[in-house]
């Protein structure tokens, strides 16, 4: 008997198409774009759930609803603990601050307090391999260096519930391997994981369960291999 960690109950979310001030007061318009339609599922404690589907099917929006970024128009979303969304590594990075200051800023954006961030700094610096550059302004960094710093800060998190949105594969091949290893470590360490990815190989190897989404709805929920089969089947139908 396992405990529920994330509960998504009949969640619908639409994005407004028309831009009018009045829309903010009205709940929904018929012309709105329906991004999520009556989504219901639960994730148990310790479960690794994957979500697949073609671009624009609502995967990322669903993760953002679970993370609290978008609030659903209908239904509700509940969780049992601290949630972290790993997406767009290096959010809020600015060129004129040093690497260290950016790491502190990014860490605080992700919800760390000062004590934790100062104690994590050595680990962040060594993981990002930026020992000689950490006090240089970020504008002098290469794209790969920025990505490394972003992942180093993000992976220092220790959330109860981890949401991952396509962050695998940054930097050079060696670092790519290292980052993949790190993320797998995080997945193993976190209580509950929801993972959005297009790499089906990874999904079948680490997910306990996979949801296939299409046009804002759940098409299939269950065994990873069967979910991937359902995905290919619906792709076949489109042709």
């Amino acid at each position: 008997m396992s405990e529920i960690s994330i509960l998504v109950d009949n969640v619908s979310l639409s994005f407004p198409k028309k831009k009018s001030i009045l829309n903010i007061i009205k709940r929904r318009e018929t012309s709105d774009f329906l991004a999520l339609e009556e989504i219901t599922f639960t994730v148990n404690q310790g479960e690794v759930l994957g979500i697949i589907g073609r671009n624009g099917c609502g995967k990322s929006t669903l993760l953002r609803v679970i993370a609290g970024i978008f609030s659903p128009d209908h239904g509700q979303c509940k969780s049992s603990g601290k949630i972290s969304l790993l997406a767009g590594l290096g959010t809020g990075f600015t060129g004129h601050l040093t690497g260290r200051q950016n790491a502190l800023l990014y860490g605080s954006i992700l919800g760390h307090d000062e004590k934790i961030m100062t104690s994590l700094m050595p680990e962040i610096i060594s993981f990002s391999e930026l020992e000689n550059f950490i006090d240089e302004p970020l504008r002098t960094y290469s794209a790969g260096m920025k990505a490394r710093l972003g992942l180093a800060v993000a992976s220092a998190l220790n959330p109860e519930i981890l949401l991952i949105d396509e962050v695998l594969g940054v930097g050079d091949p060696v670092f790519k391997e290292k980052s993949k290893k790190k993320i797998l470590e995080m997945v193993a360490g976190a209580g509950t994981v929801v993972l959005v990815s297009h790499s089906f190989g990874l999904m079948t190897s680490i997910c306990d369960r996979v949801i296939h989404m299409g046009e804002g709805k759940i098409m299939f929920d269950g065994d990873p291999k069967e979910a991937i089969a359902s995905y290919y089947e619906s792709e076949e139908k489109r042709k």
Binding site: S2, E3, I4, G68, Q76, C77, K78, S79, S80, I83
Partner: peptide
């Protein structure tokens, strides 16, 4: 899922 209520579930994105 009878044991599901042991952990307190909270609504995400607090607002008042």
């Amino acid at each position: 899922m009878g044991g599901g209520e042991a952990v307190q579930l909270k609504e995400v994105g607090e607002r008042s």
